[in-house]
């Protein structure tokens, strides 16, 4: 299972990077269209913004796996052994629940706005943009479960010590 999760994270990171490059490209186009005569790219800012949204939602999910989101960990770090394990599992479960909301409501919104079009590119469906949310949500759920599994595994193997 760990191999699968790592593989998923590997793909997601590259997806995020791809969207990052896409929005960099669009912003460059936007600057160029301002200063180079003859170049007018109306859709550049809008496409850049949506690629950016994909980047952030993918990145946020990846950081769930790496457990690097900003948080107050003073109290959890003071706990030891079993109580720390419990606290960490509660945290992972909370993230799992949040991922579930993102996935569920994100799916609803994606369906709701599926047929709507972008302002500057009427031929592109808005659904492709909203899709970032459920994708982020479901991967967050997967990573949260993987983190629970890792923590329990660690706890058993190292007899109560958890890797920070």
């Amino acid at each position: 299972m760990k191999r699968w999760i790592d593989r998923l994270e590997w793909i997601q990171l590259r997806m995020a990077a791809g969207f990052f490059l896409l929005f960099i490209g669009c912003v460059i186009l936007q600057v160029a269209s301002r200063y180079l005569p003859g170049v007018t790219v109306l859709w550049a800012p809008e496409v850049a913004t949506y690629a950016f949204i994909w980047t952030i939602f993918m990145g946020a999910a990846i950081m769930v796996r790496r457990q690097e989101h900003f948080r107050f960990d003073m109290l959890v770090n003071r706990l030891k052994g079993r109580s720390q394990l419990v606290a960490r599992i509660v945290i992972h479960m909370t993230i799992l629940a949040f991922g579930f909301v993102l996935f569920g409501d994100g799916t609803t919104l994606t369906q709701q706005f599926w047929a709507w079009s972008l302002n500057s590119l009427p031929q592109v469906k808005q659904g492709y943009v909203w899709l970032a949310i459920p994708v982020s949500g479901i991967t967050m759920m997967i990573y949260a479960i993987a983190n629970i599994r890792d923590d329990i595994h660690d706890y058993k193997r190292k007899e109560g010590e958890l890797t920070p």
Binding site: H69, R71, F72, D73, L75, I91, T94, I95, F98, V101
Partner: peptide
Amino acid sequence: LGVPIAFVIGI
């Protein structure tokens, strides 16, 4: 509890 701030706000 140590839940990431972004998620706390969202929840």
